[in-house]
Design a protein around this nucleic acid. Sequence first.
DNA 1: ATCTCCTCTTTGAGTAGTCAAAGTCATTGT
DNA 2: ACAATGACTTTGACTACTCAAAGAGGAGAT
Lengths: 220, 220
Amino acid sequence: MASTTVENYLKQLYLEQQALAGGELVPMGRLAAAMTVTPGTATTMVKALAEANLVAYEPRTGVRLTRAGEQLALHVLRRHRLVELFLVEVLGLDWSEVHEEAEHLEHAISDKVLERMDALLNYPAVDPHGDPIPTAKGKVSSPRLRTLAQVEPGTSARISRIADQEAAFLQFLRRAGLTPGVEVGVEARDAQADQVKVRLGGKPVTLGTAAAAKILVEEA
Amino acid sequence: MASTTVENYLKQLYLEQQALAGGELVPMGRLAAAMTVTPGTATTMVKALAEANLVAYEPRTGVRLTRAGEQLALHVLRRHRLVELFLVEVLGLDWSEVHEEAEHLEHAISDKVLERMDALLNYPAVDPHGDPIPTAKGKVSSPRLRTLAQVEPGTSARISRIADQEAAFLQFLRRAGLTPGVEVGVEARDAQADQVKVRLGGKPVTLGTAAAAKILVEEA
DNA sequence: ATCTCCTCTTTGAGTAGTCAAAGTCATTGT
DNA sequence: ACAATGACTTTGACTACTCAAAGAGGAGAT
């Protein structure tokens, strides 16, 4: 069985790979930063993961999950995201706090309990942040989404996913009403002022480009 | 924060202390057996716990929880038992399998989640096996109960608690209908044949003394 | 009174994960 | 072309937990 630590490395590696999009290798520095360990620690760990055939490692270049590693990572992610939704839907916790909780629970939940939660939640497709929940078989749907910063002014879009788990950011979004499912109209975009102006249900909201880039949308 | 390992030692020590009843020290051998580690490992660990003022340790005699250690143990036990009940009541798991699940979850649940579960379950007093759930403040009610093996033939009693978490034993009890809350009449007791005959709702059941001793009852 | 046995403790060693700091390598700028 | 820079790897060391095996202590049997 994979230890909690191994599960975390694989999960983080999966997320970094996604962030890189293309088939590139994840540089060690990124992985080390994501895991908040020193680079030496990441190197040591990755060598062990490569030994176990969970990753392919190119020294001084980077690292990538093998199929086996990816399956394991997706299983961890499935637990994480189902737990998050469960905490919100069943226990009534706030959107902004479930990520931290799930970070621990994802390693302690058996498959049996996981499938019960899945059934109780009626086999949901996405977690409270709009992130897709991998299936038990390890499949994820990941539609290509644009960010709110890329939407042409004058058009509107539906928020589908938040690409940041920071509690403070999520609390801001909830207060602003910028939650998955909500329809927003983009009014103006100003690269110089680093701003995007949107309108939701009549109310205007101004966001920095960096914040808008963390809000993924489907265009109408 | 106490590690998972430390939490388990404290919890097990609490349970062993209870089993001993009197104020005696728990011998190292018992603790080592309960933790399924070698005696040397238990000695090492107990010395570390004593250093942290969680236990009082008398070399070659035994070990006992300090007040601080007991509070921590009760907090772990509270998590364990609330989780068990939650798994049965909310996720519909079987009585016999929740102990194992809770064994892992008890270390991953935050206070916030715990209190939500407590509220959702309407502040229960006992877990699915009839074991009392300590309060958040660390109080436990432990009424003096007799075992089914001690009940006088001719009288009847109500099952209140099962002092064994073995899945196979619990499955047997469920099939036999010997679950907490059930009223049984004791018909005969035979020390020589090592048997207790009971009747529940008309049906007769015969148990060995050892099994009957693991069923705690309130007498009518 | 002492021998025996069993229980407990000590010692030496190993695994998993981590860091600090020294060493190596490739790229980048001149 | 080559020195400087920054990213990565290596090395040595530490913590937490564990076991196997050798050593010590005490309680009962003779």
